[in-house]
């Protein structure tokens, strides 16, 4: 994984609460055996009209939302399934951070493992961000704050290990593999107990 240290972008806003993984990528596209190229399917049934053209009512289709890498979404974003296709699709679509007052557990975990910054902010800050679409933000992963255009800051906290992995591009599987001896010892203790 490439290190993720800083992210600078305007925000796009989806005010809806409980945006579930089926909305992020509908289940019928999960027959893929690849993880790349899913961006065109991201928010598929919301984003396109039945004839395949862009749905003008989908907020991310608005000209001012194009190219925004930071998504501010209504609370409980990413609820539903464990499909990692959801963060894969968002990243490929160009979303590199999701800001929300509450993010579903499995989605958040999957997102951070793929370098997608799933960041929880307080409810008041969340409300403010929802009400101010299109502002320029700068997310600092090292010092855990979001810089606002007026010089203000929103502090956040990532799980320390996830942050360490983001900053250093640490491969978590590699980290686990380093513990092979401890795992073997544990397995031996199981055999003894049996």
């Amino acid at each position: 994984m490439k290190p993720v240290i800083r992210l600078h972008s305007r925000t796009a806003v989806l005010v809806d609460e409980n945006i579930d993984t089926d909305r992020i990528i509908p289940a019928r596209f999960l027959t893929t055996t690849e993880r790349n190229g899913l961006g065109k399917l991201c928010f598929h049934d919301w984003r396109y009209q039945p004839d395949g053209s862009d749905n003008p009512a989908f907020p991310l289709n608005q000209p001012q939302a194009r190219g925004c890498a930071i998504l501010v979404a209504g609370r409980n974003f990413g609820c539903g399934s464990s499909r990692e296709h959801a963060p894969w699709a968002l990243l490929d679509y160009g979303i590199h951070a999701v800001l929300c007052s509450e993010i579903a557990d499995i989605f958040r975990n999957n997102a951070l493992k793929n370098g997608l910054l799933a960041i929880m902010v307080s409810e008041a800050e969340h409300r403010w961000l929802l009400e101010h679409p299109g502002i320029e933000l700068s997310i600092d992963v090292r010092d855990e704050y979001i810089a606002l255009p007026d010089g203000g800051r929103i502090a956040f906290q990532l799980e320390p290990f996830a942050r360490h992995c983001l900053l250093n591009g640490v491969d978590q599987l590699g980290y686990l593999l380093q513990h092979a001896d401890a795992i073997t010892t544990y397995e031996k203790s199981l055999e003894k107990a049996a």
């Binding site: 990692e84 499995i106 999957n110 493992k113 793929n114």
Partner: peptide, 15 residues
């Protein structure tokens, strides 16, 4: 439930 990256973790390390 776990994501696919973690499925890989469990496959390789059972952890």
């Amino acid at each position: 439930g776990i994501g696919t990256t973690e499925v890989g973790h469990v496959m390789a390390t059972q952890c």
